[in-house]
Amino acid sequence: MSAMRPIWVIVRRELASTFTSPVAYVFLVIFLLLNGFFTFTAGAFFERGEASLASFFMWHPWLYLVLVPAVGMRVWAEERRAGTLELLLTMPIAAWQAIIAKFLASWIFLAVALALTFPAVITVNELGDPDNGVIFAGYVGSLLLAGAYLAITCMTSAMTRNQVVAFIVSVVLCLFLILAGFNPITDLLTRWASPTFVDAVAGFSVMTHFDGFQKGVISLRDLVFFLSVMGFALFVTGVILRNHRAG
């Protein structure tokens, strides 16, 4: 049996479990409503008078701050609470396969939610002549951003059997990743810290790295950043689960 097969089996189970639960559909509706509200009302889509989805993507770091932990908080906390963690990890699989699989399943769900925003793309193409390359880059960046938040949520979810704790800790950690590169904060920092220091701090922020995607640039540096956040958080998830089992 190849290493991919158990991953696929778990992904399928997780997705089936997600989509049989009404919570998934409630989430999708809320996700789309909030996206609509922020894009068209708060983001002043029409008043801008430009054919782009800038007002759509600019809110994603904030929108995901609450929505992604809501999706990911149950990933491990629920397995621990229900005792199924024991069942899962005594199956003939390695722990990393379960970690990747459970992450992938939630990421796929978030990708589905993001894909359902396609009417925004149609709208902007009907009304004007946008650069669809930029929009594509925006979607790629948005998906990576969601993945980074999700990996962090998986990590905190592995720490506890309480989903609420997992949610709150994830929001705080993700908020930190935003604020490190959020302009009002970096402006504050420049008053007393050297620009190199501020840049270094901002280098850890999802804002800094999401910026390029919004402008239509998919740079290796930004890709590496998001992939390393995911890799690191999932690695720590493995360490946490191992320590939990070791007692």
Binding site: A82, L87, P92
Partner: peptide, 27 residues
């Protein structure tokens, strides 16, 4: 084959689905 304490199982799955999952995991 392992039956853990308290017989943990995924609560939202059907019996058929759960056994199918176990079979898949066992290859």
């Amino acid at each position: 084959g392992y039956l853990p304490e308290n017989a943990a199982a995924y609560p939202d799955m059907t019996v058929r689905g759960f056994l199918g999952f176990a079979a898949d995991m066992r290859g």
